[in-house]
Amino acid sequence: MKPPAFDYHDPRTIDDAIALLVRHGGEAQLLAGGQSLVPMLNFRLAAPAVLIDLNRIPDLAYIKEDRGQLCFGAMTRQRQVEFSPLVAHRLPLMIEATRLAGHLPTRTRGTVGGSIAHADPAAEYPAIVTALEGEMVVQGAAGKRVIKAADFFRGAFTTAIDPGEILVEIRMPVTPDHSGWAFEEFSRRHGDFAIVETAVMLTFDANRRCRAARVAVSGAGAIPLRMPAVERMIEDSDLSEKIIVEASAQAAELIDPATDLHASAGYRRHLTRVLVRRALTRAAAQARGRN
């Protein structure tokens, strides 16, 4: 189908975008890369009276390192991330996940902030910011505020961004030394949203024991699930095969998956166990190799 009629604005600055958002209130919808919103417009699942297109705001597209964090402007294209030497060097986990997000032609347009603000329960970036305890910077007429990942995702397709606010930046810690990482997902076809996916970051100490573990699972609930109980089983261990098997079994226990068109709850549980095991195994080997 074709989109319904809407008024269209393409502001050049963040301030202009916020002013438009304030003026039009609930009537308005922000357009980022459009790889989820335009299909919804075409299906008429979304029918905003006003569309505010963020694609002509250059200040929203950048990748920079700042005080131990990698900062992504919300309108940074996924394709930009995929080929960024800075990201490859400082946060390679993000590149691994990006290659699993859609296809090259959708990554040309798709943005980091769009994916996170859309908060699809099966999208890759929400899983990473959750695992790495990233931060989202939102801006409204009253200024900026920073929201931690743990407080940001409120439900499927629902975030803590208030009406009148725009997501402007996403921050994640750069990869510590002696770390290993892995992003594992299972989807029916390459480029599809995952049925289940997991993001893992392990940091070892000089004695090859795990100093810090970060594990998140997505697709098995409404929001990405950080797994402190699993992390505690791994931390201060040598990540032997036995521990990895136990930790991944624990991860499968912690989720509360739904049965839907794509997979049964039992199958999601099974996938969680298998994917977490694979991710931990790969990340541990890598961390040891870099020690």
């Binding site: 269209y8 393409d10 959708t106 347009r109």
Partner: peptide, 27 residues
């Protein structure tokens, strides 16, 4: 498909492939 799944509408936009059914002409 008109919703970004089939890729038949792929064109080059400033040199990079995009789905032209997921962009507005004004863009």
């Amino acid at each position: 498909c008109e919703h970004g799944v089939c890729g038949a509408c792929t064109i080059l936009f400033n040199g990079a492939a995009v789905r032209s059914c997921l962009m507005l002409a004004v863009q």
